[in-house]
Design a protein around this nucleic acid. Structure first.
Lengths: 110, 110
DNA sequence: CTGGATCCGTGATGATACTG
DNA sequence: CAGTATCATCACGGATCCAG
């Protein structure tokens, strides 16, 4: 437990860019947010939607995102289990970042 | 040499977000671009402007950015040496990404 | 189906000394 | 001043097994 993601340099304090990067800077965070986007999506779907990600990373990043209030997790006490993920209000605020990344990628890399 | 940054998953192909992340996803790339911004800045200034970065990472990331056409490097054959870095036209296109990150950080993390 | 836990390799990052 | 080289480290991320 408490496998926090933050360690980074001693002074990420006053720089909002760094602060954001601390949460969104991983290899998968933004991709996951990008895939969830405006929909209600289940764990299995998400996994299929992101080729190449391992279950561990998917769960780990999802937990981080939930912990940071960007993603909402709703588990139904059923058999078999069903868990749905959606973006929170804060999570939606990351979409401009992702869109900017997408625009940049299309203009310069494809 | 040829210390490419790309490896990532086998299919970063069609996803512009991933493609961008391949170049900008490092720990320092966006911070560096953020600091260069609209100015003409020298190596030493840049180093001072980014507390916590090691010389190795600064040079390495700068080289990557130059290689990817986001940063322009101009070296003057003087003693002592003087090297100036500026954003290229493509580099400027990353500023919206950074601004989005800054906005998000200010709204949600500070 | 969801997802927690552990083991482990590798790349990414850091500190420092050195060179032109 | 700018950049390189080397070495040590550690977190990231992947595989696999286990559990509700």
């Amino acid at each position: 437990m408490s496998k926090e993601r933050k360690k980074i340099t001693p002074s990420d304090d006053h720089c909002p860019v760094k602060a954001s990067l601390n949460i969104l800077g991983g290899k998968w965070s933004l991709i996951i947010l990008y895939q969830i986007n405006e929909r209600v999506i289940r764990y299995g779907e998400l996994k299929r939607a992101i080729p190449g990600i391992s279950e561990k990373m998917l769960i780990q990043e999802l937990n981080n995102l939930v912990k940071n209030g960007l993603v909402n997790k709703k588990a139904y006490p059923e058999i078999p289990p069903r868990v749905e993920y959606t973006l929170t209000k804060s999570g939606y605020k990351t979409l401009p970042i992702i869109e900017a990344l997408a625009v940049f990628g299309e203009e310069n890399l494809l």
